[in-house]
């Protein structure tokens, strides 16, 4: 498999795995959980280094996943006290975990090169170089891992579609019909944590955060139907992956950064030209309405008979 195809496929798989969960995060107003997870995994990597003295991907992903899940559950618990709002709970938990990680590095691991760039912030350009032989063909390890995650997310969203939909839009109602909103919210967050951690290792944190938030937010501007929103999110994710790679190669810039910028560009376009919620559509709507009100007012104040011939 060529390196180009391999990189695009890796990014596309991240876009798929993230795009399935992103819409739910945006609709539940917890979009920034993904950013929290990207910082909160640091102590996991340090702990794995201290115990096993390794930076091999699978143990690191395992350690990071433990802290990612700890992070999302701690946020959920803090929010559950009703004393701290969701956004503040996120802002309290992840800097604390990140601090633990930084202290762990300076205290116990400063003699080795355990910096952020080379561990959690993986680089997508290097993803084709680590390969696994599958049925005689050398396939990039990131593609194998991410296909697994994407498959699990597809199963999760398809099997629990009704449940996720109900708990997202009407938690009270779903409780009365016996679907626990708390349980599903935790399930979603744990899925986000695992997806993010696996993807960090192959494409770097910022691209994962971007693909979890930006395509879903863009789709939210374009449609009101949930399944359409998920489909649009996936489409935008793949467009970002392909166009971003093409752009990065043609100007010789960071691949992850370019993919993020394409996603941002899609968002900006939707913000202006979305047929129902775009800036242009809204201002046209406003103008039409004010004109019709003015016309009615003008008709109403005209004296009887004077306007009969118009």
């Amino acid at each position: 498999m060529s390196d180009n195809l391999s990189i695009i496929l890796t990014a596309g798989l991240v876009a798929t795995a993230a795009g399935l969960l992103g819409p739910f995060l945006v609709l539940r107003r917890v979009a920034l959980t993904s950013d929290a997870v990207s910082h909160a995994v640091l102590p996991g990597i340090v702990v794995i280094w201290l115990i096993f003295h390794t930076r091999a991907p699978l143990p690191v992903i395992g350690g990071a996943a433990v802290f990612a899940i700890l992070c999302v559950l701690a946020i959920d618990a803090l929010k559950g006290t009703n004393l701290v709002r969701g956004d503040a709970a996120i802002a309290l938990v992840f800097p604390a975990l990140f601090s633990v990680g930084v202290l762990g590095i300076t205290r116990y691991a400063s003699d080795i090169h355990l910096d952020l760039d080379s561990t959690i912030y993986g680089e997508i350009a290097f993803s084709p170089f680590e390969t696994l032989p599958i049925a005689g063909v050398e396939i990039a390890r990131s593609i194998v891992l991410l296909s697994g995650v994407a498959l699990v997310n597809i199963l999760l969203v398809v099997l629990l579609w009704k449940e996720f939909k109900a708990t997202t839009f009407d938690p009270e109602f779903s409780r009365t019909i016996g679907i626990s909103p708390k349980l599903l919210s935790r399930l979603l967050l744990v899925a986000v944590a695992i997806t993010a951690v696996t993807a960090f290792e192959s494409v770097g944190a910022i691209l994962v955060v971007t693909l979890l938030i930006v395509p879903a937010t863009t789709a939210y501007l374009l449609t009101d139907r949930l399944w359409l929103m998920v489909a649009t999110t996936l489409a935008i994710g793949w467009i970002s992956a392909v166009a971003g790679y093409w752009g990065a190669v043609s100007v010789d810039a960071s691949i992850a950064g370019a993919m993020g910028l394409v996603a941002a560009l899609c968002f900006a376009i939707a913000l202006f030209v979305s047929p129902s919620y775009g800036l242009i559509a809204r201002s046209l709507q406003r103008r039409r309405r004010s004109r019709s009100v003015q016309r009615e007012l003008a008709l109403a104040v005209k004296p009887q008979g004077a306007g009969a011939d118009t």
Binding site: S34, D35, V214, T217, G260
Partner: peptide, 12 residues
């Protein structure tokens, strides 16, 4: 989230 990821991507 959108501003965060767009700006950081631009920065990279």
């Amino acid at each position: 989230g959108v501003v965060l990821s767009s700006f950081f991507s631009l920065g990279i």
